[in-house]
């Protein structure tokens, strides 16, 4: 359809009057938008109707009518501002809720993490408590052993170059148990270990009681079924030695 056909069709008049179907209206609106000549024609049609309608209008106080309209508009504006306010409030609440929820989620995650770490810490502490309990039990046992009337206390004095070293042995002949307190011994060098010997003096015969294990205990229990007359501590290669290295005899003490 060319421009003249469109003009003659009556569609443009119908378009201005709003008498077209929605689809037809969209099609004509597009044509008019794209074609200045059609737009001009539409405006001429509109002008004619406009004049006709205006000519029919009764005389009226235009300003008074407008003032009245303005009153409504201002009132409505105030109301709609209220609405805006409440709309914003709604949005604000939504945003607060969103951030709140996010924050709670974050907090919850953090708390969960914290709880996991606390549970882990608790497990570690439980292990520590257990080990302290067992240590405590060991000390209790040692104390009970030491307090026995037939338990002997033997001071082992520092020997030769190791004059400042000392150790204490608690020995109970009936129980065949010996406790060694190594608090007075210097730390063993790397790859070396202290070894405790049971000695009989005539002839001098050393019997291995065991190496002094490196742990947090200062009071170490040994089984000692020997007829011990004296105790000696030597420093040996890690793992211990079948016979004592007398050059590295640190402490020595005889049962009186």
């Amino acid at each position: 359809m060319d421009i003249q056909d469109t003009k003659n069709s009556g569609d443009l008049e119908a378009y201005v009057c709003g008498a077209l179907t929605r689809q037809e209206n969209m099609a004509i609106a597009k044509l008019v938008r794209e074609n200045p000549e059609l737009e001009e024609e539409v405006e001429a049609i509109e002008r004619a109707y406009f004049k006709l309608a205006a000519g029919i209008a009764p005389a009226a106080d235009e300003i008074a009518i407008y003032e009245s309209i303005k009153g409504y508009i201002r009132e409505g504006k105030a109301k709609s501002e209220d609405n805006h306010w409440s709309q914003y409030l709604g949005w604000a609440a939504a945003i607060v809720l969103l951030f709140g929820t996010s924050y709670m989620f974050y907090q919850n995650t953090e708390l969960n993490d914290e709880m996991i770490s606390i549970v882990q810490k608790n497990q570690i502490l439980n292990v520590e408590v257990e080990s302290l309990d067992s240590l405590n039990l060991d000390y209790k046992e040692a104390l009970a052993f030491i307090k026995k009337p037939n338990t002997l206390k033997i001071n082992l004095a520092g020997q030769g170059d190791h004059g400042t070293a000392n150790a204490v042995v608690f020995h109970n002949k009936e129980q065949n148990i010996t406790y060694l307190d190594i608090t007075g011994l210097p730390d063993a060098p790397a790859n070396m270990t202290y070894q405790l010997w049971s000695l009989t003096l005539n002839p001098l015969t050393p019997t291995n009681l065991g190496i002094v294990a490196v742990d947090n205990k200062n009071l170490i229990e040994f089984t000692n079924p020997n007829d011990t007359e004296a105790f000696g501590i030597t420093l040996e290669e890690a793992g211990g030695s079948p016979t004592p290295t007398l050059e590295r005899l640190y402490t020595l003490g005889a049962i009186e």
Binding site: A57, E62, Y66, I69, I73
Partner: peptide, 20 residues
């Protein structure tokens, strides 16, 4: 609102005619 006033001035008479 100023634009609305102009729109009113421009179209009120024609609409008044249609309504009437």
């Amino acid at each position: 609102e100023v634009a609305f006033t102009r729109i009113y001035e421009r179209y009120q008479k024609a609409l008044h005619g249609v309504i009437f």
